[in-house]
Deep mutational scan, measured.
Amino acid sequence: MASDGVVVEIGKVTGSVGTTVEIPVYFRGVPSKGIANCDFVFRYDPNVLEIIGIDPGDIIVDPNPTKSFDTAIYPDRKIIVFLFAEDSGTGAYAITKDGVFAKIRATVKSSAPGYITFDEVGGFADNDLVEQKVSFIDGGVNVGNATPTKGATPTNTATPTK
């Protein structure tokens, strides 16, 4: 695992066909100046998982989280898009600690492993708008004895992609 920078880890949970599971997305290594904004994309298989919603985690402190935390689910493109932009203008609602960034709610549709993997990152910046190093650890849903650990090695991303 990367020793510096922010680590975004997609949790690994267990479920069975027809059940709804909650998959946490963790941030670790949050910089001392916090995270003022970030955007990134995960990939998944809508034939295996139906993403039914995404909720902000406990490290989102904006009293009205829909102003700073936004997501979009595109089953036709097989992606989930995340956007966080601190909304106070003063840094008061920045992410300042490690913990759960988001909770992905999904219904298991198939007995195949439900991988959720890193696809791309736009950027991560602290309260001074300084770009942060970030790496990703894939996860998803274990169905029966299947284990979604494909790509469990962190993917280092030093520069934003478009």
Rank of each mutant, 00 (worst) to 15 (best):
A2T: 08
S3G: 15
G5D: 14
G5T: 05
V6H: 08
V6A: 04
V7M: 15
V8P: 05
I10V: 10
G11P: 07
K12W: 10
K12I: 12
K12P: 06
V13Q: 03
T14M: 04
G15N: 09
S16G: 08
S16L: 11
V17F: 15
V17H: 09
G18W: 03
T19P: 11
T19Y: 10
T19E: 01
V21S: 06
E22H: 05
P24A: 04
V25D: 01
F27S: 08
R28F: 11
R28T: 08
R28A: 12
G29M: 03
G29D: 04
G29K: 05
V30E: 03
V30I: 13
P31K: 15
K33R: 07
G34D: 15
I35S: 03
A36C: 05
A36H: 00
N37S: 12
V41S: 01
Y44G: 11
D45H: 07
D45I: 13
D45G: 13
D45Q: 04
P46C: 08
N47Q: 04
V48G: 04
L49F: 15
L49N: 15
L49K: 15
I51G: 04
I51Q: 09
I51F: 08
I52P: 06
I52F: 07
I54E: 03
P56D: 11
P56C: 05
D58C: 04
D58T: 08
D58E: 15
I59S: 12
P63K: 14
N64W: 08
P65E: 14
T66P: 09
S68D: 06
F69E: 02
D70S: 14
D70Y: 15
T71M: 03
A72F: 00
A72N: 00
A72L: 00
A72R: 01
I73Y: 04
Y74R: 00
P75S: 07
P75G: 05
P75V: 05
R77E: 03
R77K: 01
R77A: 06
R77I: 02
I79K: 02
I80T: 05
V81H: 00
V81L: 01
L83P: 01
F84N: 01
F84Q: 03
A85P: 00
A85W: 10
A85L: 13
A85D: 00
D87K: 07
D87I: 14
G89A: 05
A92F: 08
Y93K: 15
A94S: 05
A94Q: 03
I95D: 04
I95V: 04
T96S: 10
K97C: 05
K97P: 12
V100I: 10
V100M: 13
F101M: 14
K103G: 13
I104D: 01
I104R: 01
R105F: 04
A106L: 10
A106M: 08
V108W: 05
K109V: 11
S111G: 13
A112S: 08
P113F: 05
P113G: 11
G114D: 09
G114M: 06
Y115K: 06
Y115E: 06
I116W: 02
I116K: 01
I116V: 07
T117H: 12
F118R: 04
F118V: 03
F118H: 03
V121I: 15
G122R: 00
G123C: 01
F124K: 00
F124P: 00
F124R: 00
A125P: 00
A125M: 01
A125K: 00
D126P: 00
N127W: 01
N127H: 01
D128I: 03
D128P: 01
L129M: 03
E131M: 02
E131V: 02
E131P: 04
K133S: 07
V134I: 14
S135H: 06
F136E: 05
F136L: 03
I137D: 13
D138E: 05
D138G: 06
G139M: 05
G139Q: 11
G140T: 14
G140R: 13
V141Q: 13
N142E: 09
V143Q: 14
G144I: 09
G144E: 08
G144K: 12
N145G: 07
N145C: 12
A146E: 13
T147V: 12
P148L: 04
T149Y: 09
K150S: 11
K150F: 07
G151Q: 13
G151P: 12
A152C: 13
A152I: 10
T153A: 10
T153V: 14
T153R: 07
P154M: 08
T155E: 07
T155Q: 14
A158R: 12
T159A: 09
T159V: 11
P160W: 05
T161K: 12
T161R: 10
